[in-house]
């Protein structure tokens, strides 16, 4: 079962797109790939106030990911804690994963010629830190949920 989840408190999110850049700067990504995205629907008046809510999307780290089996070099890996990541040493940049993913989530890093995607900042998680997008969210709207927390709160 997936251990982690990113949860956006959309009431607190101010659509500043900080998370998108926090992610890129942490991974040292050039112009091109954007691993997470803030989006919203057009404004709609609700009780006199034109409103919209923000959504955050990175990678779904699917229970049964299409991207993993398709990878010819076995670079796409699902860890025991559910994180789906790309082993950069094995990736050859064929982008079969992007084709297989229903949401086209893996992207080409033009600097390395390899695929990149959200890996929940596993290097940070593994040393007890939170992902870049969560740590630096401008309004602390983005949260890392660890599954035992959810069970606890029930």
């Amino acid at each position: 079962m997936n251990k982690y989840m990113l949860y956006l408190d959309s009431k607190r999110c101010i659509g500043c797109h900080g998370c998108e850049v926090h992610c890129k700067t942490n991974k040292g990504l050039p112009v091109g790939p954007i691993l997470c995205e803030i989006s919203h629907d057009p404004l709609k008046a609700v009780r006199g106030v034109p409103r919209t809510e923000f959504r955050f999307r990175s990678c779904f780290h699917c229970e049964d990911p299409f991207c993993v089996p398709i990878c010819p070099t076995k670079a796409m890996i699902k860890r025991d804690d559910g994180i789906v990541y790309i082993d950069q040493d094995k990736c050859v940049g064929c982008m079969a994963c992007a084709g297989a993913c229903p949401w086209n989530i893996p992207q080409m890093n033009p600097e390395t010629g390899k695929a990149v995607k959200c890996d929940y900042c596993m290097d940070r998680l593994d040393i007890g830190l939170r992902p870049a997008c969560v740590t630096k969210c401008t309004t602390h709207a983005l949260k890392l949920v660890t599954m035992h927390e959810v069970t606890d709160s029930k």
Binding site: V21, H22, T25, T139
Partner: peptide, 23 residues
């Protein structure tokens, strides 16, 4: 390697512009 809002004052929070400093 890392840039964030001062944890003591901002709890790590930074905005998009702040993260684009290294660029």
């Amino acid at each position: 390697k890392w840039i964030e809002g001062n944890p003591h004052l901002l709890g790590g929070a930074l905005c998009a512009k702040g993260s684009a400093g290294p660029a």
